[in-house]
Design a protein around this nucleic acid. Structure first.
Lengths: 100, 100
DNA sequence: TTTTCATTTCACTTAATTGTGATATTAGTA
DNA sequence: TACTAATATCACAATTAAGTGAAATGAAAA
């Protein structure tokens, strides 16, 4: 096991990748399957520039990847840990009767 | 179920409560049982003022609570979800052979 | 009741995040 | 080759987060 502080730094950096309402929305979309950038812009209502930056951040943290099909980029979730965390968040914040 | 954006906002705010190397270190300490502020300062090496602010943030997000014993405050983790997430993070960032 | 200990709050600075319009890139289409 | 579509990058402004010394609070202890 590496040094605690190093682990904490890496884990925090990863968490920061998810800790944004807009990126969580993006991840919720991607949780249902891969989507291209234009689709993500439409469903979330984010500005194009903003979307691009969020996706870059998610890529940087190895949370998503993409494939290119002609000139369209299809993004998808590429990380088991993030799915597990989203599951926890779903139970905590999205289930009926969750007035926590 | 409430509105997606509201849920995303609440979940992101909660995640931001954890998404800091120093707060993760604090939470790791607290995961082994309740600790008073002075103990936390000693084991983490954080400055007193800084520790106080981190604890305030963790309280604000309902991640920790405390009890008073004479003039000492003992903090403890008060949130199931955060323990589950820490478990995910442990496997991802702290286990041997984790060079991810 | 004054002092001391444990902790928080204040005022301030510095750094990081987020969003935006304009511009660039890259791949297909005419 | 020029044009358009899809997406990324740049440069900048605004907001939020994090750290620090000094002062304040609150609860014992002397």
């Amino acid at each position: 096991m590496k040094d605690m502080e190093e682990n904490a730094q890496a884990a925090a950096s990863f968490l920061k990748g998810i800790a944004s309402p807009h990126r969580l929305l993006i991840l919720c979309e991607l949780a249902t399957g891969e989507k291209n950038v234009t689709e993500l812009i439409q469903t979330t209502g984010l500005a194009q520039t903003s979307m691009s930056k969020h996706l870059t951040k998610l890529k940087d943290e190895n949370i998503v990847t993409f494939r290119r099909d002609h000139r369209t980029l299809f993004y998808r979730i590429n990380n088991e840990a993030v799915l597990k965390i989203m599951d926890v968040l779903y139970h905590e914040f999205c289930e009926v009767g969750d007035d926590k």
